[in-house]
Structures are given as C-alpha cells and as structure tokens.
Design a binder for these strands. Sequence first.
DNA 1: CGTCTATTTGAATGTACTCAAAAGCGGTGG
DNA 2: CCACCGCTTTTGAGTACATTCAAATAGACG
Lengths: 198, 198
Amino acid sequence: MEASSDIFPRFTELFRTTFGLDEAEYTRLLACFHRRLLPKKAYYLTAGDVTRGKAYLNKGCTRTYVVEESGKEHVLFFSFEDWWVGDFQSYHTLQPGTQYVQALEDCELFWISRDDFTRLAAEIPKLQAWDQVKGRKSMFATLNRLSEVKTMNAEERYLNLIEKHPAINQRISLQDIAAFLDIEPQSLSRMRKRLSER
Amino acid sequence: MEASSDIFPRFTELFRTTFGLDEAEYTRLLACFHRRLLPKKAYYLTAGDVTRGKAYLNKGCTRTYVVEESGKEHVLFFSFEDWWVGDFQSYHTLQPGTQYVQALEDCELFWISRDDFTRLAAEIPKLQAWDQVKGRKSMFATLNRLSEVKTMNAEERYLNLIEKHPAINQRISLQDIAAFLDIEPQSLSRMRKRLSER
DNA sequence: CGTCTATTTGAATGTACTCAAAAGCGGTGG
DNA sequence: CCACCGCTTTTGAGTACATTCAAATAGACG
C-alpha cells in the first residue's frame, strides 16, 4: 500500500504520531498492508476459516457473530472505523475459527498477513509492544462484556449500547441490535416503544 | 518460598518439566513466591482492591464474581488447583478492580508480586513468553465464555459445566452454581429435579 | 409502481421470577 | 447423644415478561 495520508488520517496518526514510528519504519509497515474493499453484506470471515492476517477497518462497520445449532445468530460485537477485525483465536492458533465477520456497510480494510506482521513485529519492538497492549485491552473489553452480559438485562444493555454509540440506530438495523442483545427483533421493537413513552 | 517439590508437584512440573527452567532459574523463581493460606470464605481480592501480584492456586477452589447494584452476585468463573487467580485488568492497569475472589474451600496459594514477576520475566525470556501465551489462552477462554453465555440457555450451560467438571456438585454449592448460571437457586433446584426425572 | 424485506403490533404461551414456607443438613453446646 | 440453631435446598402458588405464531404496516430498492 502506498503512503497518502490524506485518505487514512487515523491510520497514519496511529502509527506515526501516537505510536512514534519513524519515516522509514512507517514506510516499511505500510508496504505490507493491502487495501481491501468489502461491499455491504459481504463476509470478511466465516466460521471454519483460518484467519490469515489482521485488518484495520478504515471505513464502514461490521458485525462479528456466532451461530447456534438452531441457526440463531448472536452478535458478539460491532466494529467501526479505527478498529481491528479478525478472529483472535484463529489468528493465534491457526485453527479454523467460529466467528463470522460481515460488513454492515461498504467497508474499506487495510489488511496485513500474519507472517508479515510477525516479521515486522520482530524487527520493530514498538510494534510488538503495541500488539501486546492491544491484546490486553481487548482482553479487558471482553471480560467487561462478559460481566455486562451476566449482570445486566436486555434493556440495561441497550441503554448502555446507545450511551456508548449514540448514533448506533442510524447505522445498525434493529435485527442486528436485537442479535447483539440476544433478544427477538419484536422484543426490541416493543422495548423501544416502551422507552419512548417515558 | 523454599524448594520441596513434594508438596507442590504440579507447580514444580509446570516450571521445570513443561516449561523447561533450569535449576538456577527455578530456584530464583521460587524464592520470589510466598505461600499463603486462605481459609474457606475468606477473600483473596475484593472490588476496589488493586491487584499487587498473581497467585498460583495449589489447593482448594475459589469463585470470582462481580456484584450488580441490586446486590445480586454473578460468578464469572470458578478456579481450581493449578490455576492462576487475580484480577487481570487491575493487575495490568494498577487501577482498583471490580472482581471479588473468594475461597470456597481452605486454599493454599503461591503468591508473587507484580514487581518481582516483571523483573523475573525480563531476566528469563521463557517466563515472558509463557506469560504471553497464558494471557492469550485466557483471552480465548473469556471469548468462548462470552459466546457460551450468549448462545446457550441456563440448562445447556449447566450440562456443559458438569461435562467439564464432573465433580462440581461435590465441591460447589447450589447457590454458587446458580450464580454462575445467572439464575435463582430455586430455578437450579427445579432444573436438577427435571433433569433427574429423565 | 411493485416487490421484497424490515419493523411494528396483537394474542396466546411458556418459563423463570418473586414471595413464602417447609424440609434437610451440619455444627454447637448442653 | 440429643436438641437446637442457622443455613441450604426443595417445593408451592401466583406473576411478569420475553417468546412464538401470525398478520399488518412501513420502507427500501429496482
């Protein structure tokens, strides 16, 4: 991928400013990334795939979900601009994953292979450190999600979601939000009506 | 702590055999651990504590739980022999934690301070690597737990728990298992009756 | 404008919940 | 050894709320 910081300012800032890579390191890093477009409804990953790399989400949003035997879908989380997407477990174990990652809007991804990233990380200690910190933060987030799912009911989790992502209703459909809350679309529709009546 | 592999064979095996530390490294490591007894019902951690180290659970079992505003307790997981206990987030951020870790039986812990572990890990690369792998595995486990909580109902999760820990009913009380499943003790009692009638 | 999908609304059902009480169990002290 | 106490588990009855099945309405897209 070629340098042209105009079209991905956040990505540039992440590695240059926030993260402190010098010009040479950044150029080398950038050369390993590949731009990939994912149209709405297309899959970045499906269950059974082995994750071959990691992807920076520059534009658009995705849902990461798992499917129970009955066929019901459960959204683990949504991802938006400036997030990294992929199946963490499959990435590290090289085993087939269990997650689906689907574009909910037309997406632009910057993709880097596992091998390239591993090599770069070995050469650039800052990158290694960043990856570890990112892994840890992701762990905190997941543990907090587990707490949340266990301690809060669907309505509390809905209000929580809206608080964190005020524009969520403009970008994510009712049924996807319902699949995130693990309730039926009808129940979410009724919940919204109930909440708006206050 | 002094070397006497008889009383903690799994711990010794973990670092010597499985992990491959040499005599000198192991002795140095062991010197940093402190034996700590935790009587039944005592707390290793409570919400608000900053986790100052990590602890290897040599004997006994614990519950790690969070409390919702109403006062209801939700067990995130149980820990048994050969597990490490602590509040992962608090350990890394040095912020007050949100979890309670309570002994469900008389416990024996081998405790090491964050500072000692950090220093040792810097000196012994294998230890560093092991810690990272452990962190990753713990991440997989948490993500799988999140999936499980979202896709399975209380009965499925109960059967799952029994499958993984067949002796759980001998060691953990009905109310603690109910708090793990996020249902009322009455409901678990009825569920057991229903299951035994088949 | 018409078709297809998403959302809303209605009615009946089921399951876990709450409140309440009884039964079981373990430990302590007389 | 037995009686009592506290705590855990079981059982009962009524209630609340999300679900299911079903249909109507609204919105999106060609």
